Amino acid sequence: MLQKLGPLGVLGVVLLLAGIGVTAYANPVVGAGIALIVAGMGLLVKRGVDQVMGLFGM
């Protein structure tokens, strides 16, 4: 999986997790909410990409 992301993708994931961690440290409820939003957006993006790839027959 890390090979598919590349170095910039890995850096993006690290920064995303660090940002959620800092927010959760300051306010755990808000941090949990942000984590759920990011997870939901990730699922939506994955579903959208799968749908588009299906349209192209891949």
Rank of each mutant, 00 (worst) to 15 (best):
G40S: 07
I34M: 10
K46R: 15
V13E: 00
P7Q: 12
L2T: 13
A32Y: 00
Q3C: 13
A35P: 01
G31E: 11
G57P: 09
V13N: 10
G57H: 03
K46A: 14
K46G: 15
A35E: 08
L16P: 06
P7A: 14
V38H: 03
P28I: 01
L16A: 14
M53G: 02
F56I: 09
G42P: 06
R47S: 07
V49A: 05
T23N: 13
N27D: 15
G54H: 00
G40L: 00
V13S: 08
A24F: 13
G9Q: 01
I20Y: 09
L44N: 00
G48K: 15
V30L: 07
V52G: 09
A18L: 04
N27M: 14
F56M: 07
G40V: 05
T23Y: 14
V14M: 10
Q51N: 10
T23S: 11
M1R: 09
R47N: 11
V52T: 03
V22F: 06
P28G: 03
G12D: 02
I37N: 05
G9S: 10
G12F: 01
L11F: 15
G19P: 12
G21V: 08
V13F: 12
V10I: 15
M41S: 03
G19Q: 11
A26E: 05
V14A: 12
F56T: 05
V13P: 10
L44G: 00
G54W: 03
M53V: 04
P7S: 14
A32S: 03
L11W: 13
G31Q: 12
V13A: 14
G9M: 06
V10D: 11
K46C: 12
G42H: 01
L16G: 08
A26I: 04
L17M: 08
G54F: 02
M58T: 10
M58I: 12
F56G: 06
L17T: 07
G31A: 15
M41K: 01
Y25T: 02
K46T: 15
A18G: 02
A35F: 05
L17P: 08
L36K: 02
V38S: 05
A24I: 05
L44T: 04
M53D: 04
A18N: 05
G42D: 02
G21E: 12
L55F: 00
L8C: 09
M41P: 07
V30A: 01
L11N: 13
G33M: 08
L8G: 01
G6P: 03
M41T: 03
A24V: 11
N27I: 11
K4R: 08
Q3D: 13
